[in-house]
Amino acid sequence: MTYDYLIVTHLPAFYKINLYNEIAKKLNIFVIFVAVDTEEKRSADFTNFGDVNFKYEILTDKTFQARNLLVTLFKLVTKLKKYEFKKLLVCGWDLPEFWLAVFLSSSCKNCLALESTVLESNTNGLRGLIKKIFLSFIDTVFASGDLHVELLKTLDYDKKIIITRGVGIINKPSFSFVNKHYRKRFLFVGRLTSVKNLKVVIDIFNSLPEFKLSIVGSGDESKLLKKNAKSNIFFIPPVDNKLLRDIYLDNDIFILPSKKETWGLVVEEALFFGLPVIVSKNCGSRELIEHGVNGYIIDPDDFFNLQETILSIDDATFAVLQNGVNHFSVNDKDVQQISSYLY
């Protein structure tokens, strides 16, 4: 049997499983997962094989961080020799497994799903040269968005580029949408690390006692952030994806102020559940936000820009933003994402 795609990716993350399930409805694919799980994830059900509708194998039953590299490389070689495929799709350039895969495959078959952006990826000196060497083995790049295309241009990539507008497909549980009254309830979901820029957000909300901020997640900044937060800021431990719906629906505005973010799947989740989004201009998913229509794009390094944006929202502007969110279709965006792999 010849597969349309042999896909090599990090983990069975839920959003990748959802994407591959949809592609598998149109094409014959086989997926090789490097590891079964990771020690760094936002919830217990971040990785799972519950609803897989395609053929796959896993190179190690250990976590991604604990894998034996020599073992995974050896197993990958045997898989590449075993299966026939029209195209090889690797989901990054950050693993030795990806390098080995593209090196052993014909360059005319090789595709890259690029989730790195020009903002967090080093393009100078030796690191830039290494990325250019990797790209020399790649015939087609599936770039998530504009910041990803900009990275390719910086690296002088001149072959085929297809924009997907996503990195996977979110879970979409059913819910009843209702127009809300603005209650000044803001939400963040993600890992609590310095790159998320939450200290700045907490400083702002500390000065706004009539506003409520809910922070869902855990990470190495948890203790520091909790220590600095006042009583209008609430910390919620990591929540399973299937339980996030009610948290989104209980809030008004989603905020993602990251200093850098390759995409930001939480932006799609917020839009799906009807929340306008305040997003950093350094997030890949910023292109899903039309400034002043379904959210705002802010400078994460400008404290007053973020503060003024929060304070500018009142009942009237919230109604405008909600209307903008209502006219944005995550489903339509996902149709484009799925179709991009059918070229």
Results as ranks from 00 to 15, higher is better:
K159G: 03
D158A: 15
V167R: 04
V178F: 14
P173S: 07
L151F: 13
I163C: 06
Y157Q: 05
L151C: 08
E150G: 09
K180F: 02
K184N: 09
N171R: 12
L147Y: 03
F175S: 01
F177E: 07
G168E: 05
R183W: 08
H148G: 04
R185A: 12
S174D: 05
V189G: 09
G168K: 04
K184T: 09
D158V: 00
K172W: 01
S176A: 03
N179G: 00
V167H: 10
S174L: 08
E150S: 13
G168P: 06
K172V: 01
F177I: 09
F186I: 13
D156T: 12
L151D: 04
Y182H: 04
N171F: 04
D158R: 14
L147S: 14
K160L: 10
K160P: 01
S174Y: 15
I161S: 14
I169Q: 05
I161C: 12
F177H: 13
G168V: 06
H181R: 13
L151I: 08
I162V: 15
N171M: 06
K153A: 10
V167M: 14
P173L: 00
F177C: 00
P173M: 01
S176E: 08
T164L: 08
V167D: 14
F186V: 14
K160Q: 09
I161K: 12
